[in-house]
């Protein structure tokens, strides 16, 4: 237990901050993932073949390549790519993207591919008649989407989004290559220092279990509340 003490001798405070980091990265990544889903879900559902190909390319690529490779590629190629784009606009200085953003972006891109699939599935499972009915009622396209389609989509999507959240949370364990000190990297450092990997990796596992447990509880509560609206 001394190993988990807070302060200079123990690893308690370091692990606590690492846990906060994991949570911060997971939430940021999940939000970035939503942004990607917002772009790619319409592409996948579009009538145009060309746009479909674009959307499918993203989800197939990201879901078919190990997360570790995606993170490595973004870590080593990310700054270069951004600088290349900037150079097109006549900006040649070094652009730094900090470790937190690189990490969140990498996990976010992965998370986004799963979210896209969830949203696509949710929209598809909405009864076709609803679209027709809304049209017949003469609702505008905007109202149709925000008042009819979106709430229903969310209802179908939430259970599956909680899976995406779990995947995202666990994937953060892979971003230690970016130098970001999250739970996994901190456990690695601590177990190297104390030569007690069994203890620290078990603690890491336990923290993840608690995080998934608590977040599931939260999502269930939210779901119950939200579902009551219908």
């Amino acid at each position: 237990m001394e190993l988990l003490a807070f302060g200079k001798t123990g690893w308690g405070d370091e692990l606590f901050y690492a846990t906060l980091m994991t949570i911060a990265v997971s939430i940021t990544a999940m939000l970035i993932g939503f942004l990607f889903a917002l772009i790619f879900t319409p592409l996948k559902l579009s009538k145009y073949k060309f746009l479909n190909i674009f959307g499918n390319f993203y989800t197939t690529l990201i879901r078919g390549v190990p997360e570790l490779l995606v993170i490595y590629l973004l870590f080593f190629g990310g700054s270069g790519a951004v600088m290349y784009v900037a150079s097109i606009f006549g900006y040649f200085e070094y652009i730094e993207i900090n470790a937190f953003l690189i990490g969140s972006l990498a996990i976010g891109i992965i998370s986004g591919a799963y979210s896209t699939e969830v949203f696509r599935g949710a929209i598809k499972s909405i009864d076709k008649g609803q679209f027709e009915a809304a049209k017949v009622l003469g609702l505008s396209k905007f109202t149709r989407f925000y008042k009819i389609i979106f709430p229903q989509m969310l209802r179908f999507a939430i259970p599956n989004l909680s899976n995406v959240w779990q995947i995202t949370l666990k994937d953060t364990s892979l971003i230690s290559v970016t130098g970001l000190v999250e739970i996994m990297r901190q456990s690695r450092i601590a177990s190297a220092f104390t030569r007690d990997p069994l203890f620290f990796y078990s603690i890491a596992g336990l923290i993840f279990l608690i995080l998934t447990f608590l977040s599931m509880k939260l999502i269930n509560k939210f779901e119950a509340k939200y579902m009551n609206k219908f």
Partner: peptide, 16 residues
Amino acid sequence: KTIISVLASLLIAGNI
């Protein structure tokens, strides 16, 4: 607000 601040921090990339 969170989305906006995340977007903003994405765009503002520090210069060395």
